[in-house]
């Protein structure tokens, strides 16, 4: 009888649980080789926009300027049983900032390529990091 009751409870728990995976992307991935081809002191703002397209942000820094390019990937994972749920969100970005002098010539490049490192991960209960 106890076994049957346990089986019934286990079946109910399994039957009433659900899970999901979702992925969303914001903008297009940034071509890494195009960024590596940019040459400070030579490449102009026009050449940068030809290679990378329109920036998502332009910042005026006195007489100088900086453009931001960004691609974002968000992966969500969820598991829901009767009483509790687990939900994990991993958000990573490809982001590039290009800095120009007052003549619109490239002076500095800062880049981060992490978009493809986003993972589907359920959080572990009791983790303390």
């Amino acid at each position: 009888m106890t076994f049957l009751r346990s089986l019934l409870v286990a079946s109910a728990l399994l039957g009433l649980s659900g899970c999901f995976l979702s992925r969303s992307d914001v903008n297009e991935p940034i071509p890494r080789d195009a960024v590596q081809a940019l040459k400070p002191g030579e490449t102009t703002a026009g050449q940068v926009t030809q290679a990378l397209g329109a920036p998502v942000e332009v910042v005026q820094l006195g007489r100088r300027s900086a453009y931001r390019y960004e691609y974002e990937r968000i992966k969500m994972t969820g598991f829901f049983a009767i009483l509790v749920g687990l939900r994990g969100v991993d958000q990573r970005s490809d982001r590039v900032w290009v800095f120009f002098d007052e003549n619109d010539v490239l002076t500095h490049v800062g880049s981060t390529f992490e978009g493809d490192r986003a993972e589907y991960e359920l959080p572990y209960l009791g983790e303390n990091d």
Partner: peptide
Amino acid sequence: VSSCITGTYSREDRQT
């Protein structure tokens, strides 16, 4: 079962 009570453990990682 009627979703009146739910407990959720969430973790969010953004950037490294």
